[in-house]
Nucleic acid binder design. Structure first.
Length: 481
RNA sequence: GCUCCCAUCGUCUAGAGGCCUAGGACACCAGAUUUUCAUUCUGGCGACACGGGUUCAAAUCCCGUUGGGAGUACCA
């Protein structure tokens, strides 16, 4: 059998390190078995997808060196490789019609209001089953057709079995995965806007693209029955499904940008060597048979064994990544290292220059003037942090107050983190607490830059970025204890 | 809540019933090298979640408990 595997990320937001992890596994599996590795873009949720994040997926995979044999920007004869284009080509509609004709799917005319009310009801009644109550399941087909023709809006749902047990042996797990059909609700396959949901689109596309193995994250395990069922009803030979453990934050939860940098491009901007990131990811859930810790992609492909993959979700340990990164970086020859340094500076220098230029006398001044933009480690001395007229305790209290204001804004999604937003927010905070701007701003300047002199405060904080600034705020509060 | 998945040092992992007094790596601690720092080297600390079985023998197989995670959308 020809091995054909794929990754199918959604272009919503920043390219994710979890995608890189799954990509690496699929890539190695394909290369190991002389098969193909394919990129498909899943953008059926139009409201959340963007062109720029689609481009960022291409860029980040390219940067990592995980080249795909078929994909939107490289072509292939099983395209198109973007689902919105496949929708436009009418690829899914026929399959939906067939399911309805077979009696394996049905139109559901329930309103979102009714569905919401139903959910509330189930919650209030502390029901053990949450999900659609199959209100439209047994609608007369002719009646259903008539209402559709009359222009009523509807979704199409799968007619899931009402009883029996689903079982599937995932090759990475000891026991078969089992689930009672009674616990699986009638999943929407076609949304009211006529677009397929993930479940339908993925199953159809995997089939049409000749995918042999679907190696994906564990979060999909619970919807596996639906996918296997769809394959069956559509008359497809299902690919083999394999579920890999989810990357975790240090606290054990599913990896998230709040607690860890998850943006692949962040690592690039930061100056990570892609080989180091790949090497690190290859040690998560997988290990070199000779206990080697440092090895390149070719070596990884040589020793890669899907069956030896660990299914427990590994914690993404930044310290270990940095250790490997150090090894790779120091290995670079002079020219390569200079290139890397240039690249890291160039990525942000155009944003920084407007702030720095007034303060510069020589080109060499950059190394001093901009150093705090390029590091994660800013030193906060108590002497610098505490402004005239305040003591350490007072400064700490003010910083903690601001921290809570910024965290609350982030929680509500109410922040843009640009200069003017920061000015409004921080000034507002200062006024509410009746702090003198002078006294409040000095500690913040030191928090952001590690120095008492810096470019304009709010621009500086904006450019340092939320993630880094909040970390520095944390460090400063710690220093004041 | 319900369902599913998972469980070896703080973290990543080795371990396929006797090679286990549980091995390696990161982190941490100590020492050596280094005019400092970093690198490098040496050493140290440190785990089979708990309770029952099965077996001559259990980290490894079975059951239960506990703990963690995921899913529960007209998101993927």
């Amino acid at each position: 059998m020809t091995v054909r595997v794929r990754i199918a990320p959604s272009p919503t937001g920043d390219p994710h390190v979890g995608t890189a992890y799954i990509a690496l596994v699929n890539y190695c599996f394909a290369r190991k078995h002389g098969g193909q590795f394919i990129l498909r873009i899943e953008d059926t949720d139009q409201s959340r997808c963007s062109e720029s994040s689609k481009q960022a997926i291409f860029d980040s995979l390219k940067w990592l060196g995980l080249s795909y044999d078929e994909g939107p920007d490289v072509g292939g004869d099983r395209g198109p490789y973007v689902q919105s284009e496949r929708v436009a080509a009418g690829i899914y509609q026929g399959h939906v019609d067939r399911l309805i004709a077979q009696g394996d799917a049905y139109r559901c005319f329930c309103t979102t209001e009714r569905l919401a009310a139903l959910r509330e009801e189930q919650k209030a009644a502390k029901a053990t089953f949450f999900g659609y109550d199959r209100h439209c399941r047994d609608l007369d087909p002719a009646e259903s057709q008539r209402r559709a023709d009359a222009g009523e809006t509807f979704v199409v749902r799968m007619k899931a079995p009402l009883e029996g047990e689903f079982a599937y042996q995932d090759r990475l797990r000891k026991n078969p995965f089992t689930k009672q059909w009674a616990e699986i609700d009638d999943q929407v396959l076609l949304k009211s806007d006529g677009w397929p949901t993930y479940h339908l689109a993925a199953v159809v596309d995997d089939h049409e693209m000749g995918i042999s193995h679907v190696i994906r994250a564990e979060e999909w395990l619970n919807s596996l029955p639906k996918h296997v069922w769809l394959n069956e009803k559509l008359g497809f030979t299902a690919p083999e499904y394999v579920h890999v453990g989810l990357l975790r934050n240090p606290d054990g939860s599913k990896i998230s940008k709040r607690k860890n940098p998850t943006n692949i491009l962040w690592y690039k901007q930061r100056g990570f060597v892609p080989a180091a990131l790949c090497n690190f990811l290859a040690t998560l859930g997988h290990s070199h048979p000779d206990e080697l810790e440092k090895f390149d992609l070719d070596e990884l492909i040589r020793i890669f064994d899907l069956d030896r993959l660990n299914v427990a979700g590994p914690v993404f340990d930044m310290q270990k990544l940095e250790h490997l990164q150090g090894l790779y970086f120091r290995e670079l020859d002079d020219d390569a290292m200079v290139g890397e340094i240039h690249r890291c500076i160039d990525e942000r220098i155009h944003d920084l220059l407007p702030l720095l230029r007034e303060r510069m006398v020589y080109g060499g001044d950059l190394t001093h003037a901009a150093s705090f933009f390029y590091t994660d480690h800013v030193s906060h001395s108590v002497a610098d942090l505490v402004p005239k007229g305040w003591d350490a305790a007072q400064t700490k209290k003010a910083l903690e107050g601001l921290r809570s204001v910024l965290n609350k804004a982030a929680k509500k999604g109410d922040l843009s983190w640009d200069s003017s937003w920061l000015e409004t927010t921080i000034r507002g905070f200062g006024e509410a607490k009746e702090y003198k701007p002078k006294q409040l701003f000095m500690p913040l300047r030191v928090v952001a830059s590690g120095r008492r002199e810096s470019p304009p405060l709010f621009d500086t904080i904006a450019l340092v970025g939320r993630l880094a600034f909040m970390q520095r705020l944390e460090d400063a509060i710690l220093a004041l204890r």
